[in-house]
């Protein structure tokens, strides 16, 4: 469904991604792993058009989207939940979520989508009228994911969905990703911790210094010497 081939990205004069290859199939859950600053978030920004590649190609469901403007991705069925939730701080939870259905097609189905999401996310019902800023980090993450889903995407991309969350909230978000995936929505996310990642992901990619290091399925990847090297000392830190 999503295909990235030899994608290179730079910010100003500094290149941050080098020949990245990555793919996500229909209904798949894919994790991108790697240390801080390895370029994981940039991969997602490249997909979404926020950091357009200067070389390589990105296609989605057979269409080339390498140079597609950011705003047009939603209509193609991709939703990105940015790092640190990025809710609109002075809008209410409900207003925030409805912003997710800004795209015309999504707006038509907004009521129905909202009912579906209220089933998945109790926070939408409990705190709908509250100002987004007043929510806890975990609750904000839920709202941000719900906002992303309002456009009824085929692929949901989550940038650092577990960042700064308490272990209990991590577990909740993990459950949520499973539930979303059960509806047939493919999920692409990143996370430093390999064990957390593979508790939900079908496949994973390890990125280091902006390059593919290794990819594969399941915890078997962990036996790879490169992984052992990258994650030496970090393996025991699973929450």
């Amino acid at each position: 469904m999503l295909e990235m081939r030899r994608v290179c990205v730079r910010y100003g004069a500094t290149q941050v991604l080098w020949d990245i290859d990555l793919s996500v199939g229909e209904g798949e859950v894919v994790a991108v792993m790697g240390p801080n600053g390895s370029g994981k978030s940039t991969i997602f920004k490249a997909v979404m058009g926020l950091a357009p590649p200067f070389a390589g190609a990105i296609s989605f469901r057979g269409e080339d989207i390498t140079r597609l403007p950011v705003e047009r991705h939603v209509a193609r069925g991709i939703a990105l939940v940015l790092e640190r939730r990025r809710l609109f701080p002075t809008m209410t939870v409900r207003e925030n979520v409805l912003m997710g259905a800004f795209h015309a097609q999504a707006a038509k189905a907004a009521d129905e989508t909202l009912r579906w999401l209220q089933g998945l996310f109790p926070v939408l019902r409990e705190r709908g009228g509250q100002i987004a800023e007043s929510l806890s980090g975990g609750e904000q993450q839920m709202v941000a994911i719900a906002r992303g889903l309002m456009s009824r995407p085929r692929l949901l991309i989550l940038d650092e969905p577990f960042l700064g969350l308490a272990p209990k909230m991590v577990a909740q978000v993990v459950d949520l990703i499973r539930a979303v995936n059960a509806e047939g929505i493919a999920v692409l996310f990143n996370e430093q911790n390999v064990r957390t990642s593979f508790s939900i992901a079908d496949r994973g990619y390890v990125i280091e210094s902006g390059r593919n290091v290794v990819d594969g399925t399941g915890l078997g990847m962990l036996e790879h010497p490169d992984i052992r090297r990258v994650y030496l000392g970090e393996q025991g830190a699973a929450p």
């Binding site: 609109f88 701080p89 809008m91």
Partner: peptide, 21 residues
């Protein structure tokens, strides 16, 4: 719809664009 686009852009331009604004 225009008003919501304005407010969203004002509060977080990047987040608004990602949502299709």
């Amino acid at each position: 719809r225009f008003g919501r686009a304005v407010r969203a852009t004002a509060q977080d331009r990047e987040a608004a664009r990602v949502l299709g604004v």
